[in-house]
Design a protein around this nucleic acid. Structure first.
Lengths: 333, 333
DNA sequence: GCCTGTCGTGAAAGCGCTTTCATAGTTGTG
DNA sequence: CACAACTATGAAAGCGCTTTCACGACAGGC
């Protein structure tokens, strides 16, 4: 340790740097001068080895390039850097095997905590993992020792969106429900059904179609629906990307939004302010959820119990349902 | 070291694990059995400390949530994991100060190499950095020891797009040029000018407007242009996100794409297949560039000189210029 | 059959920190 | 004023690996 050359023992320097114990003001000054002079920076690798903690948080996302998860990462990064932790981003690609590989890799790197965005691993595995190190998961309700979960109210969001369409007079509302295995998909479907029921509209299975949670999925689902001949006047997509795909499919058929079909998305991606027409969508403040998740791990690491509350969903009304005033829409943060 | 308990010396185990030297088949077998039995996994932190290399590559992107850079990260991740390196993603937010902070942080983490996507730091700094460790940069032409750059031909791309519009009969082609300080912006502007010149069209400064490289920038630039009263029949945006913004601004003014104004973007983001109408755009295979960058660092680390060639630009013609057949467009990879 | 080369292996010295443990110095209390 | 209770500091023992160095074993060449 270089700073030792300038007066005192390595232990004292270490203590000063980590705030482990009090150091007399004189020594403190001497050390600080020496550090400055030598341009010393700690080696996190060495301190990780010696101290057993790395000041790193592993963050497992599902798709590094997803516009949705990207914003979560932004929020996480921001908070973590502020708390002097370094995020380690890896992507699990929705595959439990990849996710497990990521976890093992992060574990071997001795991360101090883990954030998994919508894990694909079963609850039991996550609970077991949480026993090894602080864990925060999103998109799932789960409680246990060393575990904190942050679940967005997908049911309420879908309810809101469906009700909006109903209030506009729509009765035949199609729903692109996403991938069946995805927990968000099932919750959103429940919300859709609940809203229909609350307004006395019978649920018609022919109006719900599955689709992969990307543009192409929405496009294919819509083509499928159109080909089936089922009549509908409005569509709700379980995420914005599928809504974009749906819009394209409608466009190719010569159907206009909102005149022929009203369209609502889910997530309110940044790009949804810029579709033609701008898309009405359920706001899912994923960046804020990212921030909360980051705060939760740091709390967990300090041994605090954490009780996080995901922000409530809200509906951002734009032009795609024909009822919005066609004024300038302010951009989401 | 645990595996030592099962027969031989730690050195031998280390040699086997790293392939540093030959190990007799018998010992090899014994060790492998022991490793299996003990469920041993190496501790990268310790080996990083001891060996001086971490098998980590620092990757500095500018925006973690950007749909454009996100794809680059995907390509990088894929190749790096295949080469048994772990990527460390951080974002510089276009700010030289943040970028420098990221570099320092990665350096202190003892990364074995660095990839910087369109750095905002000056050439001299990068050259100096490359003397410290293998460095790959994109979006800039730079050569030096330990340095490899990968520059996309923005000039040719813009030329291609402009020429396409000219061939369709447009003479008054507006250009949203992006942020003046961004190197991509200036190259694309040059390409635009060159194409005009080659076709005997005088360059009209009133037709080029700046704009931040995001949707909002394109929107504001277009509003500005429309307000100025300058006549034009086509627009070229220096990236797709600005093209999306431009499309919205035109839409709000009641101008139709492609009937009233033809629109061409740049980058060919995934979403550009799904805008209404689907956007004609210059294909910028950023994911492939990411892969190449990743290959380049690993080559550089092994002391090889690298001579990478970024893929040539091409124009993906969709519906936004009115000349495309309105058939189903295949999705980009 | 002696000497030089090559090969597989073990011992041991770190890599740059953290952290017990021990020590000297200081203050407090009956 | 002696004894306990702190406090600030140093010495030294690792954290879990890599790597140099040295050593014995065996091969080939004169």
């Amino acid at each position: 340790m270089v700073a030792q050359a300038a007066g005192v023992s390595p232990s004292t320097v270490s203590r000063l740097l980590n705030g482990t114990a009090r150091v007399s003001p004189e020594k403190r000054a001497t050390i600080e001068v020496a550090i400055e002079a030598l341009g010393f920076v700690v080696n996190p690798v060495a301190s990780g080895l010696a101290g057993g903690r790395s000041r790193c948080i592993g963050v497992i996302t599902q798709a590094l390039s997803s516009p949705f998860y990207g914003n979560a990462l932004l929020g996480i990064e921001d908070v973590l850097i502020g708390a002097n932790y370094a995020p380690l981003f890896v992507s699990g690609h929705w595959r439990p095997r990849d996710e497990q590989r990521c976890i093992n890799s992060l574990l071997s790197r001795r991360v101090d905590g883990l954030i998994i965005l919508t894990p694909s691993l079963p609850d039991a595995e996550l609970l077991a993992l949480a026993r090894r190190l602080p864990l925060v998961v999103t998109g799932r309700q789960l409680t246990g020792p060393g575990l904190c979960s942050l679940d967005f109210d997908n049911h309420a969001g879908a309810y809101l969106a469906t009700e909006h369409l109903i209030r506009l007079g729509h009765r035949r509302i199609a729903f692109i429900k996403g991938t069946a295995s995805h927990p968000d998909a099932t919750d959103r479907l429940r919300g859709y059904k609940a809203a229909l029921k609350a307004h006395g509209i019978a649920f018609d299975p022919a109006l719900t179609v599955p689709g992969k949670f990307i543009e192409e999925g929405g496009e294919q689902a819509t083509e499928h629906l159109l080909a089936s001949g089922t009549a509908f006047t409005a569509m709700l997509a379980a995420n914005d990307q599928m809504a974009y795909g749906a819009a394209l499919a409608l466009y190719r058929r010569g159907l206009r939004i909102p005149d022929d079909v009203a369209l609502v998305g889910f997530d309110d991606l940044l790009g949804s302010s810029y579709t033609l027409p701008p898309l009405t969508s359920v706001r899912h403040p994923i960046q804020e959820i990212g921030r909360q998740a980051a705060r939760a791990v740091t709390a967990l690491i300090q041994g605090q119990v954490c009780e996080m509350q995901a922000p409530a969903p809200s509906l951002i009304v734009r032009d795609s349902c024909g009822a919005a005033p066609s004024v300038r829409v302010s951009h989401p943060v």
